[in-house]
Nucleic acid binder design. Structure first.
Length: 449
RNA sequence: UCCUCGGUAGCUCAAUGGUAGAGCAUUCGACUGUUAAUCGACAGGUUGCUGGUUCGAGUCCAGCCCGAGGAGCCA
C-alpha cells in the first residue's frame, strides 16, 4: 500500500493509500464519521462509515480526541464537496497515541494572541499559523534565491560582537569569559568588510535589539537580510531594494496562493508591487505630509482625523514618525522609498549629500500600516569625514578601528540595506502582529516557549 | 520610560453595590453527507493579588502584579 501525503493525494484517485498524521477535527453522526485528518502537508476528510468497517475501527474513530496521532488506510475518491477535490473512504484507523485533552480548540471565538503564544509549540499546528509560517519559509527561500542568482556571496556576520555597531541602541549584554560581549544588532559593518573583499555580499541572520518596544511591529529577536555592495551608490541601492522586494512578493503570490487564501488576504495591493516604487526626497515627503495633515483633518473618518493630529508631530526637519509612515503608505498605496533624511537623525556611517544637510539613506515604507521594512543607504567612504562623525556621535574609536581601516585601504563608494524578514512576512500575509511571522517570537515580556 | 485600555468557567464575553450567568469547547447521549455540523443532558468559579469603604464588593477606593495597544527607538 502507498504511504502518501495529503498534498499528493489527488494523484491517487481510486487507489488504496496509507496516511500518517493527526486527527485535526471530527464531525458526524452515530453511523457516519467525518475525520478531518492532517499530516502537515494539508487536511483531508476521511469518511468512516459504520456499515463498511469493523466495529472496533468505527469505535476507535469515534473515541479518539483531537491531535491523536494516527495511521489511516482507505481508498481515495473524487468528491466535489471537498475543498481538496478528494476524500478518503477510511477502512482502518491505527492509533499511535490517543489524546483527550488537547488544549487548543477550533472555535470562532479567537482567543487573545497572548494565550495562544503561551501554547505556540502546539498552536503552530493550526491552520492560520501554519499558513503564515509557510509564507515565511517561501519568503526566506526567495531572498536566498534572489541573491544567489545575482552572484552575491553569502557572508555570515558574527552574533557575538564586542560593542554596538551603531553606537546607540540598547544591546543585549552577555558574559563572554573575562569580558562583556553583546548580541549583534546588525551585521552591516561586517557586511562592508565583505563588500571590499567580494564585491557583492549578503548577510542573513538573526538580529537582537534590547529596545523596550511594545508594538505589533517589534521583536527583540528578528531576522534581517543585509546586502552590501561595493561601487553601488544611492540610486543603485534603491534599485536593488525595489527589485528584491518585487521578487520576494512575486514569489509569495505565485507559490503561496493556498496560504494567502486561507489567511483571507486581499492581495490587490501586493499585486501593485510590480510597479516602480515612488522615490521621494525627504523634503518632498514633508510637503506631502503637510497636505495630508490638512486633508485628513477634513475627513469624516475619525481614524483619519486622529491620524492627522499625529502627522509631523515631531516637527519639520525631524525624523518621520509612525503616523507619518502610515499616512504616506495610505497616500501612495504601495511601497515607497524615502531618501535623504536629515543627517542628524541617522547613524554615523551614513554618507552626507553635497549640501551636508542630508544623509544619503533610504527607507522603504510598506503600505497598509506595516511601516518601514527596509532601511539603508550609501556609507561614508571618506576617512576624514568618517572619523569626524565617529567623534561627533561619541562612538568609542577603539571599537570601530577595524571598520575605519576599510577607509584607509582602498575605500570606494558603497552601500546596502537591511530588510526585516518578519515585517516583510507580516505585510505579505496581512497579519496583525509581527509576532505571528516567526515560529517563536521574542518580545520584551516573552521568552517562552 | 511615558500615555491609554484591560484581567470573571478551558476559550469568547455578560452581570444598577444585592443568589456567579450565557455561547462555544470538554464529558455523556441522539442522528448515514457533515464543512466553524446540529439537537439534548451533566459538569465546570479563590471574579489577577493585598488591603480598605459598606449590612453587603466582580462592581467603589488605594497599592501591587500581569497583559494589550500606542509613543519614543527601530527592521
Amino acid at each position: 500500500m502507498n504511504s502518501v501525503t495529503v498534498s499528493a493525494l489527488t494523484q491517487y484517485v481510486d487507489q488504496e493509500v496509507e496516511l500518517k498524521g493527526w486527527l485535526y477535527n471530527r464531525r458526524g453522526s452515530g453511523k457516519l464519521l467525518f475525520l478531518q485528518f492532517r499530516d502537515g502537508t494539508g487536511v483531508v476528510q476521511v469518511v468512516v462509515s459504520k456499515k463498511d468497517v469493523p466495529e472496533e475501527v468505527f469505535e476507535t474513530a469515534k473515541r479518539i480526541g483531537y491531535e491523536s496521532s494516527i495511521i489511516v488506510r482507505g481508498k481515495v475518491t473524487k468528491d466535489d464537496r471537498s475543498a481538496l477535490g478528494v476524500e478518503v473512504q477510511g477502512s482502518a484507523v491505527e492509533v499511535i497515541q490517543e489524546v483527550h485533552d488537547y488544549p487548543i480548540q477550533i472555535t470562532e471565538d479567537v482567543p487573545n494572541i497572548d494565550k495562544l503564544l503561551d501554547l505556540r509549540h502546539l498552536w503552530v499546528r493550526s491552520k492560520r499559523p501554519h499558513a503564515i509560517l509557510k509564507v515565511r519559509s517561501e519568503v526566506v527561500q526567495a531572498i536566498r534565491d534572489f541573491y544567489y542568482q545575482r552572484d552575491f556571496v553569502l557572508y555570515d556576520a558574527p552574533i557575538f560582537t564586542p560593542a554596538s555597531c551603531e553606537g546607540v541602541s540598547t544591546l543585549f549584554e552577555v558574559p563572554y569569559f573575562d569580558e562583556t560581549g553583546y548580541l549583534t544588532q546588525s551585521g552591516q559593518l561586517y557586511g562592508e568588510t565583505g563588500a571590499m573583499a567580494f564585491g557583492k555580499v549578503v548577510v542573513f541572520g538573526p538580529t537582537f535589539r534590547a529596545e523596550k518596544s511594545k508594538t505589533r511591529r517589534h521583536l527583540t529577536e528578528f531576522w534581517m537580510v543585509e546586502p552590501e555592495v561595493a561601487f553601488l551608490e544611492l540610486d543603485g541601492i534603491m534599485d536593488l531594494a525595489e527589485q528584491q522586494i518585487q521578487y520576494v512578493v512575486g514569489r509569495a503570490l505565485d507559490k503561496c496562493k493556498a496560504e494567502l487564501k486561507e489567511l483571507e488576504r486581499d492581495t490587490s495591493i501586493l499585486e501593485q508591487v510590480v510597479k516602480p516604487f515612488p522615490r521621494i526626497h525627504y523634503e518632498e515627503a514633508q510637503k506631502v505630509l503637510q497636505q495630508l495633515k490638512v486633508d485628513f483633518a477634513k475627513s469624516d473618518d475619525p481614524e483619519l482625523v486622529k491620524l492627522s493630529g499625529d502627522i509631523l508631530k515631531q516637527g519639520l526637519g525631524a525624523d518621520l514618525g509612525a503616523a507619518d509612515e502610515t499616512a504616506l503608505g495610505m497616500h501612495y498605496k504601495q511601497c515607497i522609498c524615502i531618501h535623504h533624511y536629515p543627517r542628524e537623525v541617522k547613524a554615523f556611517y551614513m554618507k552626507a549629500d553635497e549640501t551636508g544637510k542630508y544623509a544619503m539613506g533610504v527607507d522603504v515604507i510598506a503600505p497598509e500600516g506595516v511601516g518601514e521594512i527596509v532601511g539603508g543607504g550609501q556609507r561614508e567612504d571618506s576617512l576624514e569625514v568618517l572619523e569626524a562623525q565617529i567623534k561627533k556621535h561619541n562612538v568609542p574609536p577603539e571599537s570601530v578601528s577595524w571598520y575605519v581601516d576599510l577607509r584607509k585601504y582602498g575605500s570606494v563608494p558603497h552601500g546596502g540595506f537591511g530588510m526585516g524578514v518578519e515585517r516583510c512576512v507580516q505585510w505579505i500575509t496581512g497579519c496583525q502582529h509581527v509576532r505571528e511571522a516567526i515560529p517563536f517570537p521574542r518580545t520584551i515580556y516573552r521568552l517562552t516557549p
